[in-house]
Design a protein around this nucleic acid. Sequence first.
RNA 1: GGCCCCGUAGCUCAAUCGGAUAGAGCACGGGAUUUCUAAUCCCGCGGUUGCAGGUUCGAAUCCUGCCGGGGUCGCCA
Length: 584
Amino acid sequence: MPFWHEDVAAWESAWQAKGLPAFPRITLTPADQQGVLTFNIFPLLKAFRGDAQAAAKAVLEPVEGVQRAEVVKGFVNVSFSPAFWRSFLQAVQERAPSGYTRLQLERGQHLMVEYPSPNTNKPLHLGHLRNLCLGEAVCRLWERVGARVVRANLVNDRGIHISKSMLGWKKFFAPATPQTTGKKGDHFVGDCYVAFERAYRAEVEALKQRGLPEEEALVQAPLFQEAQALLRAWEAGEPQTLALWRQMNEWVYEGFEATFRRLGIRFDKVYYESETYKLGKKVVEEGLKRGLFYREEDGSVWADLTAEGLGKKILLRRDGTSVYITQDLGTADLKFQDYPELTRSVYVIGNEQDHHMRLLVALLRKLERPYAEAIYHLSYGMVELPTGRMKTREGTVVDADDLLDEMHSRALELVEEDLPESERHEIAEAVGQAALRFYLLRVDPTKNIVFDPAESIELKGFTGPFLQYGLVRARRLLEKAAEKGLTPALQATPDAIEPAEEKLLQQLYGLPEALMAAARSFDPALLAHYGYELTRRYNEFYQSLPVLGAEEPVRSFRLALTQAYQIAMEAVMETLALPVPARM
RNA sequence: GGCCCCGUAGCUCAAUCGGAUAGAGCACGGGAUUUCUAAUCCCGCGGUUGCAGGUUCGAAUCCUGCCGGGGUCGCCA
């Protein structure tokens, strides 16, 4: 049983049978220490009266293939025999997809992952890209460990922000369309929104000149009043308003769809807020009837969550219209009606909405929805510029499509010039995307990212192209071997394992654990770091040891090692949704 | 002001939920190609983990206080 999760499970049951007080933690041995696996036996020392040797002996009893075990303080560093590694490589060849790169440990889990849930008044920006990369990677991670996943996108297609872009079009752009202007639909609508905002700001400034305080000015500006009227007309179902709304959303969807397609992302289910917000109102009515919520004198409806430390929250405005959280309540219900077998409902949403998500869960608990506990908010940090937050008003928002284009052309400069033009662009797209996506995935999701447009994104070092390059080289090596009639079929066991080989084997051995850890913590960065380290070790191996030129049985062992690396790395790249070019 | 998150090399980030001498990349300096792709590899430089206490075999990690940054807090989504 040469795979991590199978080994560990077998060892643990053996220890349990022997009544060991606590399972030692098992990790890959740090690079500066001798060994492959480290068993942390500090917690066992008391039971063995400080006799580390005795504790180590008990722990290692069920472990097969041990070549050397060294006890250092509370650590037992173990390395494996060449025969063990040979059987490991054999197992990778024979059952990689079912036991190594795809696991069944979370079988029975059924997730819905909601992302990126954009508004329909602006094109996608860098923050959405982080959301998309994270959401997609999390879906693929959970699929890899045996779960079923529904990718859901909730489109925020109604609300005051849409009214604003509609007004922007009416006043400054009509009758132009994306077709007549040659613009991508989402960008076209974004321009309408910006035009509205600019005019609106001017009105607010004028009112402030006349002595109105800012808060008053913001509400009293004629354009804002008009936008609100438009929202009411929309809710009342006024036909002309609906027609324009539908038209503008169509433009936006076409634009979004193009970007999603470029990123290789498709959704199983799309929810539209315009269809779910009424469900939310029903949920609020239910809460009112059951006395869980209350109505103020002005007609607005509230929930009192002070006991939960969340204060009071408005659920319906005094004019009866719904707010953001209202539709979220309805959508939460709908998700579990559509997919009753869900075990988890994941929301990939920025950490600026931590409070909002806490409110949502608290309200669902109040309503005694059992699935309130199944909700998981994958809260991620913002992408900031060195100068601070991206701001529409200051024109510092980094547009997703523009950035993808820029990455493409930066990568193109590095591609060999004597290749056909279409292939050069194919490679450039793969390299540019991998650079960008890896950059967004390599950091802890909870942390903010500082994106420096001046320095932009590296193509060397701890990057996506670094990972691609290692894999491309390995593939070419195996192709060359095949041309010479050499296969990775294992021959006799080599007498000894070189240090560079052992370091690579160690990392390969850790793949199942890395996949599990990344999925369970909803953290693709763990797998990104794993993949980087794996590539480093392969590069070192590749650089220092000959493969095709080696003597048997070392040659076939190294070919098998290269093949195992290819299998593991392809799994990493696929899971993180990083494209790999045929060559580079 | 209340609540939440964060502070690690010049910069961008790690450190496998309390473990070994805190590690990578970028930048900077030096080196490697008659051999499977040099987008690579090797060597060097770089740290009082914001500050001060506490908890214990052991703290970047946990607790308390302070300093600094960000987010959020009854009708934007």
